[in-house]
Amino acid sequence: MTKPNPADRVAYMAGQGDFRAARVRCTNACIEYNSTPENAPTTERAAKWLNIVDPDHTSKIDATQAVAIADAFTTVVVPRPTFPYVKMPFYVDYGLRVYISPTTFINRNCFIMDTPVADIRIGERCQIGPNVSIIGVGHSTKFEERNELETGVAGSWGAKVVIGDGVWIGANSTILPGVTVGSYTTIGAGSVVTKDLPSRCVAVGNPVKILYMIDEDRPPAKYAQTAMTLEEALMINREPESPGA
């Protein structure tokens, strides 16, 4: 496994009271967000999102003007959303240095194990599949070096995680501390990303390996059919009902 450069790691006392209090605050904010009804107004979602990642609302996002991506799809001119479309449940440890672009989509059951000493940044128009974990925290492999209660020495460390624009992370993947994923890269389902990945590649596996680079001249994907409405979708390849069924 590739480890982050020690020069990139910052140690901190995660067991101290103020760190614990910050995690409790974020946990409660996540519980509030995850309890939001699916049909809740975007203003309510925006306010609860800010409570996770910006408890003092210092980002100056106007929740009253928030527009969810799901709502934007119904308009002719798509307005830029003001907070990411994050399906519930969603979990963050601290939330204080997590920066997610508002055009990004995160599917259900995403875990972000962040720290207060290093950023986690997710770029524009990313797609993050269900059950993805993004980890920014680590510990020494030596028990004596991570046992804060007995040694009084910081037993946790954080390293920055950067996910570029237009990245697709497949379901059940894990991004480890200190990793940078280049823009427009695709990570296959179930991958464990232990090292930096360049832009415009397809990578899969545990540990992750690059399968190929995405050629900009690559022909567009082909499909047998395309459904533009739910009604059309329900009719595709539908088996006729048996008489008397």
Rank of each mutant, 00 (worst) to 15 (best):
T2E: 11
P6R: 03
R9M: 14
A11Q: 11
M13T: 07
D18F: 04
F19V: 10
C26K: 00
I31N: 12
I31H: 12
E32W: 00
S35W: 01
E38A: 15
T43C: 03
E44M: 09
K48W: 06
I52M: 13
D54K: 06
D56V: 07
D56F: 11
H57P: 05
K60F: 07
D62E: 10
D62V: 10
A63G: 03
T64S: 15
D71N: 14
A72S: 14
T75S: 10
F83A: 04
F90M: 06
Y91F: 14
R97T: 09
S101L: 00
T104C: 03
N107W: 05
R108N: 11
N109A: 13
N109F: 12
C110M: 14
D114N: 08
G123L: 08
V132H: 03
I134G: 03
V137T: 14
H139D: 06
V161E: 01
S173R: 01
S173I: 02
I175N: 05
L176Q: 07
S183T: 11
S183Y: 04
T186D: 00
A189N: 08
S191H: 09
S191T: 12
S191C: 12
V192E: 06
K195W: 01
K195F: 02
A203C: 07
V204N: 05
V204F: 10
P207F: 02
I210Q: 00
I210S: 01
R218Y: 09
A221K: 07
K222E: 14
A224L: 12
Q225P: 00
A227D: 00
M228E: 12
M228S: 13
M228I: 05
E231Y: 06
E232T: 12
R238H: 09
P243Q: 11
